[in-house]
Design a protein around this nucleic acid. Structure first.
Lengths: 146, 146
DNA sequence: GAATATTAGTTGTTTTTGTAACTAACAAGG
DNA sequence: CCTTGTTAGTTACAAAAACAACTAATATTC
């Protein structure tokens, strides 16, 4: 009658994922937050532009699986800080093309270095091969491979 | 000069962890949210009590790595719905011992079943052994093993 | 054993998020 | 064209989270 299988909260995947994500995000944020006061979505927008080149808010939202209002607000704040510019698109005047300013480029470069270091530090917690497998599984769970 | 190593946002662990966590949490919430209208922290408090027995808000916070104000508010709402009772502790009258009511037990049992099913469904996305490894790595990242 | 510091939990205020409704531009069908 | 529908992005309002300040009880220390 009573379930005696090994289900445990500490092994429940959504719970574990949340804990791990929160933990590493907090730890990572402690490194860069004070530096530039960027919110997570702002950080993401910055990285998308820095890493993949100019694009519209919509494209960022699609890639990052993030709702457009979140993107919109992040873009506003980044523009206010003069990290990005917004240029209305020629062919579709609803959309605007986002691009990093030199200042934004600088911030991106520095944050990217920090991210690489932090990532490498996390990687060191796993044996060779484990890290790659972990990333693959997470990508699958995140639906990034679809 | 230019970094040409393989760093990619789509492989950055904190980013991936967040995406995966958000994705699975949202999906899982869609299953139980409408059912009982529980918020995530409320769900967690309920599960801690159901799974590990009566304890104080503080203990739950420590186990779940959750801030006390979040726990406090979750406890209030659970008590309002008569899912838990709060009894002032004998030896320390600041603390109160939390316990599930029969109604709370019932909800917990049902939600636990749902959780087990969902977890099993996620597990099926991975080959034998991968799932266990994933959980282990996540526990390590979450700092649950310390 | 009074003064001080700590701890369990709550409450109030500010940020951030989620959701819906909105504007302006485009697309398609008649 | 001109009505109807869709899309990019914003804004307004409600829900939730973060953070700080608070109360009341307990520990500590001199």
């Amino acid at each position: 009658m009573t379930k005696n299988d090994a289900f445990d909260l500490q092994n429940f995947l959504p719970y574990l994922l949340n804990q791990a994500a929160e933990q590493s995000s907090l730890e990572f944020q402690r490194i860069y937050k004070d530096r530039y006061g960027l919110l997570r979505t702002e950080w993401r927008v910055l990285f998308h532009l820095g890493m993949y080149g100019d694009m519209t808010a919509k494209e960022i939202g699609a890639r990052a699986l993030t709702h457009k209002t979140k993107i919109s607000r992040a873009v506003s704040r980044l523009a206010q800080r003069r990290y990005i510019t917004r240029t209305r698109s020629e062919n579709d005047r609803r959309a605007e093309l986002l691009a990093l300013t030199p200042a934004g480029q600088g911030v991106y470069q520095e944050l990217r270095g920090i991210a690489e270091d932090y990532d490498a530090r996390l990687e060191r917690r796993f044996s060779r091969g484990e890290g790659a497998l972990l990333r693959m599984m997470l990508r699958r769970l995140a639906g990034l491979d679809d």
